[in-house]
Design a protein around this nucleic acid. Sequence first.
DNA 1: CAGTGGTCTAGACCACTGG
DNA 2: CAGTGGTCTAGACCACTGC
Lengths: 266, 266
Amino acid sequence: MPISSNHPVTSFASEIPGMLVTPGQAPAFSPLYQQIKGLILQSLQGGEWKPGEAIPSEMDLAARFKVSQGTVRKAIDELATENLLVRRQGKGTFVATHAEERLQFRFLKLKPDHGNPQNQGPAQRTILSCKRARASADVARALALRTGEAVIQVRRTLAFGGVPTILEDLWLPGDRFKGLSAERLAASQGPMYALFEAEFGISMVRADERLKAVLPDEQQAQWLQVSATTPLLSVERVAFTYNDLPMELRRGLYRTDLHHYRNQLF
Amino acid sequence: MPISSNHPVTSFASEIPGMLVTPGQAPAFSPLYQQIKGLILQSLQGGEWKPGEAIPSEMDLAARFKVSQGTVRKAIDELATENLLVRRQGKGTFVATHAEERLQFRFLKLKPDHGNPQNQGPAQRTILSCKRARASADVARALALRTGEAVIQVRRTLAFGGVPTILEDLWLPGDRFKGLSAERLAASQGPMYALFEAEFGISMVRADERLKAVLPDEQQAQWLQVSATTPLLSVERVAFTYNDLPMELRRGLYRTDLHHYRNQLF
DNA sequence: CAGTGGTCTAGACCACTGG
DNA sequence: CAGTGGTCTAGACCACTGC
């Protein structure tokens, strides 16, 4: 018996909880709470609940899926630790958003060095260009497109305290970001990922980064106002939406004379 | 009523669970499972269970602390997600160790580039020096020592496929690492952190890293067999033990021509 | 005050390991 | 087979929020 949203999942205590395939098939066992997690995930990516909104209470979800509150709870727990949901005691559980204070810029790991007064204040953002293009082979691979498919390419800088510090190129799938323009980007206030949520219904929930130390070419050096012999941090990021679909490739060059890339290991 | 190891914690269902301070004091509320977690942590840092060993079963711990299995379970859950404990279904819960396959080199984020054949095989390690010294101001600050206190300084290289790729300096508190020598380091097989566990009873459980792009000085360039104009990744790490005490400062220079520093964002 | 998430308990049964 | 961790349930009560 397959499962689908808004229908109860299979198991009752007296049956075989979590065993969804008919006996004789491969042992595709999955605990109930994982199935619930999957159903919530479907609702999230289907847009049933929008970023910033509250999802139904644990009791409601338990009733909808015909499971106990504890099982729903465990599903939500995992989604909360993955930063897809945010719990607020006494208020409810909410869909995470990059527009929110606490989760703003959570993918930006560049921090001002200690004693650097640029701690305060937001970055000054400058859109250098925003144009349609065709995916090169490597861009296509990163975005799971075919070479030559339409993409939108954005180039911008971020400055802190007047010092240009980040120069980055972004590539986005053209069919999912129709209408994105330099004007629209320049007009937005919050993080770029918040704009993607609000304008295009695309939530970035996870990202992979690869760092290298490089030297800039002449043009890059000019944008960042450094010499061509100044080592820079190259940060290549692929960002993913709910279904683990790559939705953005970003290549950044970070000045690290006044900042550093901070990482916590566990 | 204070709590201490091997004694039951306060609460029963009919009392005030988790409220340990007498009424009228500051609201230092802490859930029961957090207290259990603290007690387990004490046993870990006290050496009651050594790295690689099994801790008592959930039932045993529940009996010891006079709480339900579920409460112990939640405490262990958190310690497991922090990589301090490792659960193995059917076998037990074990103290995490850097000697273990799955957790080996988990603090080393440098990975070979795709298509780079250096994926296989361990690094070739070379100890360049290991000497006693006095903590400079910045080393002392990082290790929570006073300037001039005894430290041990180690310098080594790691090579992959014959290519020297990492050059790093380590500083360790002298009083906790008495007897550490170049010979002892060279003779050990597994990760350095495994040796620290086995020989000095010090487990590194967490670390902070700060990355910058830099140019090497002449000597560093020679060790890494690159020119002095080759940009390198500077990785400064402070590693901590159970009680969040800093126990190691490490300054590494990574070649990133054939490797990259990989980071996952959530 | 009702409604939300957060904690705690007790008990049942499942999945996995090793003797 | 016994012992371990893993899942699920049902019910109680606590802490926090906002009307």
